[in-house]
Design a protein around this nucleic acid. Structure first.
Lengths: 337, 337
DNA sequence: ATGAAAGCGCTAACAT
DNA sequence: ATGTTAGCGCTTTCAT
């Protein structure tokens, strides 16, 4: 059984209030007493109970985080910067890895409520009505990171996905490509689904390029689906000379598929990714990618959330961070090999 | 302000005791009352305060986890299975990502104590005396996952690293290789440093192969150091025909380095990894690896820890899981190209 | 079968 | 400058 404040008080020969005062760094405690108290704390190995403190202060310093898949490099990186920002501000994280399990999400939202977390960060946009209802009822600050749900009531920290996809596609057009394949995301997703798809289409149209139905596929952001969708693209009569995948994972899958089918990246087909995950530097050829400022995204998300938690201040619109195209080896000018 | 048990009691027209009883599924509550209480709970959106419960029950259902680097695929995968096992048993995780920051580790251990976590999982073996002292003072069940600290007092869930490295090296010998490079870990680490190194050496000796000093390098398990150590190996006069790296990340770095220097894997140099991370299937060629049962490791870790938490039962020795060599494309028989 | 009241470890009025 | 005491929201004797 751990020592309590009472034990410290008794050992130091003071009242619990005095102990509490030195614990919380208040003035009005003589140095002499302060010393005795600290000695007693040291001797007993006393650490104040966060539980009891939370109860009386009505403040838990806990933030709940819902991640779709912690084994994905993209989310792991955001999470690590979220954790860092939390730690810097003396908040702790309760992490829920839902891995597509909607029931688990509900369960955790309930846990979050029971634990009285002071804010919630959500990193996926597949919010159904039930979840939405639960969130609204909780009346806890909620912020979305890297995604945007249909709800206008929640603020998101994101890049301009439309513009980013537009710029990425435009870059390929600038390299002389006209037959540009697209491996998109889930069209039920606003940011990574719809917006990136629109960006792709409008860039083509803007470049005077006809949109070819067979060049357009949709995956689930993971390596495997990039591989499979690429396999379909390779069945098209006139092969695309470039492919834009809306996640680095899918781009890697696409590169592997191209290679496994005896073609070369980028000589035969250029590949462009999206995200700026660690994978971009690991592959050969290295992967050109439309990068999100992943680290910053996590940090900003936590800062905005904590501001809301502590001051009640809610941003009046989404926080848009800058995207940046990082050119590596997987894309080359058409016909330059 | 969230509703409290008192609010529920008032709305249902019963005492708080009765509400508490239905909350905890006790008998001795008439169906009629139970119904009224549940209705009130529903109407108010009431969720019992975990804080208050923890205080009176003297039980938090919290487990602290210390991860060296959450952005590494290996740790992320263990963590995800730890989280799953925790969730299945109604425990929640407080995750600390130390990323080489020893101060942060100390800070978090203190947080763990204040939060009254019921157990701690640690996934790195760089425990210094100060940390060790703190852990011992806390008197909370501690378990190590995938690593083994020098202390004999802590139990670890690991593979037989010596045997695994021995088997891996032996596999390369079986393929006809004699000039086998080694990219090891930190020799201050028992499992991933010393034991794997011994396995490598003894396999060579057992195969009647002389140990060549220039073939032996040490890295920090990350991709970059695999790349850099491989660069050194390529400077040796008689190039190794195979290289064994004690992490998949380093193996990938080594493969990239070999390729960037105009050589081919596995035709010129075979590469063997260690861990069985997701990377093994992403690279081209795919990576042959001495795999740890990563998922199982996380699950078993949590099960053993929870058993100790709930029954006080401490295993009398380390839990050794089976390693398994998975042969992919990065290793081939010598002189078979 | 239901309720009143004590107490979990702490903080914060309030007193002195 | 220090101490007394009343809660924080819940569970759990102990009564009834």
């Amino acid at each position: 059984m751990q020592p309590k404040i009472k034990d410290v008080a008794r050992l130091a020969g003071v009242s619990v209030t005095t102990v509490s005062r030195v614990l919380n760094g208040e003035k009005y405690v003589k140095d002499d007493l302060k010393r005795r108290v600290n000695l007693a704390i040291e001797e007993l190995g006393y650490a104040p109970s966060h539980i009891a403190r939370s109860l009386v202060r009505n403040k838990t310093n806990l933030i709940g985080v819902i991640v779709p898949d912690i084994t994905s490099s993209f989310y792991a990186t955001i999470l690590s910067s979220i954790e860092e920002a939390a730690s810097d501000n003396d908040y702790n994280l309760l992490v829920c890895n839902i891995s597509e399990d909607i029931d688990k999400e509900q369960k955790y939202l309930n846990v979050f409520q029971e634990m009285r977390v002071e804010g919630i960060i959500i990193m996926h946009e597949k919010i159904n009505d039930e979840i939405r209802g639960i969130i609204h009822k909780m009346k806890i600050p909620v912020i979305f990171s890297s995604v945007k749900p249909i709800d206008q009531q929640f603020v998101s920290v994101i890049v301009d996905d439309y513009k980013a996809a537009y710029d990425a596609t435009n870059y390929l057009i600038g390299l002389g490509h006209e037959a540009i394949g697209f491996i998109g995301g889930d069209m039920r997703d606003i940011t990574s689904g719809q917006n990136r798809y629109s960006g792709y289409r409008n860039a083509l149209t803007g470049g005077g390029i006809r949109i070819v139905h067979e060049y357009i596929r949709f995956g689930d952001y993971k390596v495997k689906s990039g591989y499979e969708q690429m396999k379909e693209l390779l069945r098209v009569k006139n092969l695309p000379t470039a492919v834009f995948a809306v996640s680095d994972d899918m781009a890697v899958g696409a590169m592997n598929c191209i290679r496994d089918n005896g073609l070369r990246v980028p000589e035969d087909i250029s590949v462009m990714g999206f995200d700026g995950s660690q994978l971009t530097e690991l592959t050969r050829p290295t992967l050109t990618s439309m990068e999100q400022p992943i680290q910053e995204m996590g940090k900003v998300t936590m800062q905005v959330l904590l501001k809301q938690v502590e001051t009640g201040e809610v941003p009046d619109r989404d926080i848009i961070l800058e995207h940046r195209l990082v050119s590596r080896e997987s894309c080359m000018a058409r016909g330059k090999q």
